[in-house]
Structures are given as structure tokens and as C-alpha cells.
Design a protein around this nucleic acid. Sequence first.
DNA 1: CTGTTAGCGCCTTCAC
DNA 2: GTGAAGGCGCTAACAG
Lengths: 375, 375
Amino acid sequence: MGRRREDGAGHRPNGTPSPQPRRRPTIQDLARAAATSPSTASRALSGNGYVAADVRARVLEAAERIGYVPDINARTLRNRRSRAVGVLISDLRNPFYANLAAVIEQQLRSAGYHVIVVNNDGEQHAEVEGARTFLAVRVSAAIITPVSDRAVHMLMDDGVPVVQADRMVDGLTTDGVLVDNVQGARRITDHLIGLGHTRIALLIDETGWTTGAGRLAGYRAALRDAGLPMDPDLVVPTRFQPDTAREAVTALLDRRPDVTALFAANNRLAEGAFQALQEGGHRMPDDISLVAFDDVPWMSMVSPGITTVDQHTDDLGRACAQLVVDRIAGGAAGHMTVRYIEPSIVLRGSTAPPRTSPATPVHPDPGPAAAAPSA
Amino acid sequence: MGRRREDGAGHRPNGTPSPQPRRRPTIQDLARAAATSPSTASRALSGNGYVAADVRARVLEAAERIGYVPDINARTLRNRRSRAVGVLISDLRNPFYANLAAVIEQQLRSAGYHVIVVNNDGEQHAEVEGARTFLAVRVSAAIITPVSDRAVHMLMDDGVPVVQADRMVDGLTTDGVLVDNVQGARRITDHLIGLGHTRIALLIDETGWTTGAGRLAGYRAALRDAGLPMDPDLVVPTRFQPDTAREAVTALLDRRPDVTALFAANNRLAEGAFQALQEGGHRMPDDISLVAFDDVPWMSMVSPGITTVDQHTDDLGRACAQLVVDRIAGGAAGHMTVRYIEPSIVLRGSTAPPRTSPATPVHPDPGPAAAAPSA
DNA sequence: CTGTTAGCGCCTTCAC
DNA sequence: GTGAAGGCGCTAACAG
């Protein structure tokens, strides 16, 4: 068990084997091993330019033999373009984003790109920092679920193609893939209306992005088209955190016991809403119906299952990857494209006709049970 | 609305504004803008070496003004080390891995690293490809939930420090962070035994990794220590997919209606088990108790909630990031460290004493209800 | 078809 | 305290 040679083979304890790490074979070494020149070796590997068949074979064999791995940094420096794509995502802990990231990574990997992932945690600061990183590594494109337009613009200004995913903060100047939020929200609200619900509350955390704005618009459109009154008191603002949502729902049902259906605008809010209903002893769907935007695994595990809008996250991710690949290949050619994913409704057990008669007077009486303050 | 100048400011349509993208300012440009030399500018930015205070200020100001972003590729090429860390994870769609990735990314980002994420989807091929990518970009370390030892060894052989996460395929030569699977499995099995269960089935998909092996060992140890018989028929092998697990559980309960408790070795298997129990009309915890290894969100949403082993994924991820940072800082110094995360038990509603008397005859009668075929 | 040359942007000696 | 010079590894001209 003597000392290992510095350039020896075999597994050394965790990396950094010696004061100075073993020099990795360069294309020079490869050329030497294949008895040719670096440029020929380069051509043989990349497929650009002419190389005699036997020489190419020799180079490939030698590369395999000496374990040559091209240095992407050198290549990027030289070519001024990389095979890296930056992915700036809000929160990997949220299954929606995790899925999105997974699909994007998978697609881009199979297209020969690798992915640099930055979580922005919903914070502009982190987002901008992420964009800087992307610029610094010369990514050839970026996919962003934007928090603000800062990052998007930073990248565009330096000529980096951007795809905005799930929402757009700047609809004019980049490609994007969006879910048809208006349609999804409208259809799931229609579903409730069709069951006979007339007092449907919307639990929503933001209306400043295309997502929240669209969902609110769809909800309103459905009510309007059905000739139902639009009661502002039933649009319940909340923070993004499930806990806050839970409290908001509890307060709502306290204040407005006449509500027969609840629409949570995303999966996190649905979590809070579901908990609030369970804790409050409101039975779904008997006492109240619950629907959500964005289908995530727990919604099909609970009883009753949650009726929800499936955003087809896989399609969303695939479309993002595709746009990125096209844009890289096509350069600036062509106008910006914004793709819409058509969501679908998944019916589960959390929705049913309201217990009381669906026929409601035009000026509904809140019911004798609660003395709702008129605030 | 004339043509835009090639080097003009303002937002251009999605990147690649012109045939030849605008040249980004280099350190030369920065030096010029700050009326100094590139080397001084470099020193001013990096903090290495002497720079007069006023000159440094000038450089920083100029950098801000002209929007200078150092080229990481050039820097890495020159330094032969990057601020990139490779993260090779099994499946971002699984909340366990998603969480792990999220924590790791967050920690490393705040330590000044960026993260290249590769999903291996449980396949060796993808894993090896990922390792090649990491080598190619000269990551300064990698965190891997390993599928095989190939990737681990490839990286080590080239001097890249590796941290194995969640499981180890090579326990001797790299750092690692593991969950104490034996202890976790033992304790949750103990919990069942304490409730009076004697016929406890284990649903498990692999025993070749440290995870499965440890969980099996813990389960066995608990039975042994309690003096309970170890019935091989109750160790139910399955594939990883929830569907397969579901079928396996259905088959098990068909074959062995005397089973009063089920232990699913991970969150995916628990999903299948939970579904199988619901579909089969087995009520938890009255008819059967269910426990799982790995706490994920749906387990606290369903009713009854699932009693489970919390792996403290956040601690796991933080420890990985910490080891990586230490290893990069410390070079090869010091021996390999393997940290263990001590899991804890989360009691929920899915466990209760078995319905029939806990006192069981030594040669248990399967019960008259089912005519279980003796296959 | 092949080899030589030059330079991508940066950092770090080294001389001043 | 500062600047000039060279080279990290690669590939796209260009000349043979």
C-alpha cells in the first residue's frame, strides 16, 4: 500500500488527490495520442470540416482511451456561445415548479444542453442575481418564471433569448408559454354554477401577474355570463402562504356562512383552504364545494378528491424547451411567439350541488344564522 | 421608428438583436472606462493585490456604469476552477428530491456558487452523462444521489470532490450525508409493535442501496428485539412505481388478511399502498395501520394522516452543501466524513392498535373470513 | 484533407 | 501601487 502516483489511475480519496490536481488531458494531449494535430482532433470530434475516416477513428479511439473530456469553458470562450441554458424558477419546493423544472431539464438535456437552475424564491433580488449569473456564464438562452421585469430585460439587453414561463411580465419582447388562465378559471367556475352554486368565493393571492389577473377575470366572466351578481366581498385576498390562506378561509366562512363554493386560485391556497374546511368541520362537498387551479398530487389522494384545473405542466415545460431550442437555432429570426396551453378540468369528489335549494332570490337573504357585519 | 443601432441601448426583441450579437464589455473596456489597466481593474474587482482606494472606486463605478459582467468561462479557464457545483439528482418530480435540490441550491447560491442540475431519472446512462458534463464544465464539486458507482468514480478520478447524498454506493472514498435508515425504520416498526401489531408487512422496492438495506434491517431488528417471528412472506418486494406498489398491496392483503399493519419503505410506495387500502375498502387505522418512510406533503393532507418517518430533508440538503463548501475550501485535507441525519417519527392517524386482540396464538390462525390460497 | 496561427477574456506573475 | 506579457484550452481562419 505505497503512495499513489500523482497521475496514477484508480480511485483516490475524494477528489483533489494531491496539492496540485492532476492535469486533465487537453486536445493537445489527444492530438499527440492520435498522432495528429489539435485542429484535426477538434474537427474529428466536432464533425466540422474535413477529416479522413481513419484519422477520425484514431482520434475517437484515443479520446476514449485517454479519457479526454473537452473543456466547455474554453470552448465557450472561443465560440462565444455555450450549450448552457439558465432556468430561473420560483420555488422548487412547489410541485408545480418542480415539475416544470424537471420537464425542462429533461427536454433540454436530450437536446444537448445543460441547465443552470436558480431559485428566485419569489424575490426580485435573487432573480436579478440569477440573471447576472446567466450572463456571466454566457448561457445561450434562459427560461424564467418572472417575478419582475428586471431579469428579463437584463438578459434581453445583452442579446440572450428569454422564454417567460407560466406568466409574463413583458408581453411584447420575448417568447412565452402561458396557461389560458381565463379559460380555465371560467370553466371551473362554470362547473360550479352548473351545479347550482350562486355564492362562490374566490381565494386569491395576487392579481398583478398574468396568472392571478387571468384567473380573476375568468371567474368574473363566468359569473357575469350566468347573470350572477359579482359580490366583491367574495373575492378574498390572501398571502401566498397556506397558513394565511387557511385563516382567510376560516374568517370568510365565519363572516359569510352563505357561501356554498370556494375557488382557490392555486395549489398552495388550495392547501390552506382544504385545511380550513377540515378544521372548521365543513364537509366537502355536502356543506361546501371546493375547487382549485393547478392539479397537484395531494388533490387526488385526499377524500374527497379536489376538483381542479389541470394546467398540463408537462406540456408547458416541453413548450418552453422547444421555444428555447428553436430560438437558439433560429437566432433573432421570426417574431415573438406566445404559446397558450389549454387547461382541462378534472372532476373529483369535492364538488356537488349546494345543499340548500339552488334557486336563490334575486336579493339573496344572507340567512338568519349569521349576523354579518356590513363592513 | 428607424433601425436600431447595433450597439444601441434599450430593449430589443428577444435577444440576438442582429446577425452578430453586441460585444459585451470586457475587462479591457472596463479598464479603459476607468482610465487604468486591465490588471488593475482585475485586482480592484477581485480584491487580490494592491489597488489604491480611489482607483478601486473608479473601477467599481465604471463597472456599474458600463454594465460589466465578468466572463465566468474565461475566469474558469484561467483559474482552472469554477464556482459551479454539479447536482445529480434522481427525480425532481419526487418531492423528496425536489426539496433536496431546493435546499442545496439555496445554500450554495448564498455561498457564492451556482448549480448545474441533472436529473438521472434512476438511469445509469443519464448519470454517467451528467458526470461527463460536470467534468466538462470543471465543476468544483458534485452532489450526487447515486444510482451506480460509475459517476462517482469518474468524478473522483478527475479530482472532483463528491458528496453522496441520501445513499452511498461507495462508502470509502467520498463524503456523504445519510439518513439513519436503520434507526428510523426500527423506531417506526417499534411504534407499531408497541400498539400491539405482530404481523407487520414491509413494502419495499430495493435492498441494494443503503436506503433500502437500512430500512429492511431496521424493520428486522425491531421484530427480532420484540421476539416476533420474521415472516419472509411479509416482506413484499415491488417496483418503484406507485401503481406496482398498489397491486402488490392488494395482492398481499388478499393473500394474507391477517396482516394488521403495513410499512411502506418510501413516499412513492406509500402512495400506492394508500390507494390500495382505500380502493380495497380497508379502513385506516381500524382495519389496518399504515406507516411510511419519508414524510411528504400529501401525508398530512389525507385523512387519516399517515404516521411516518421524517427524514429532515432540509438538514440533509444543508449538510450536503456544507460538506461541499468545506471540501472545496479545504482541498483534500482531512478524511472523508459521513454525516448521519437522525430521522424522527411523526405520529398521525393512520396507526392504532389492531382491531383483534393483540394477544395472538403462537401459530396464528389466519381467521375464518378469507380462504387464503396457500400459494 | 491537414497543420500552423491567432485570439476568445481573464488573472497572475514579473518588472517597474 | 501599477502595467505589460503570457497562457489557460479551444476552434476558425488560412495556407499548404
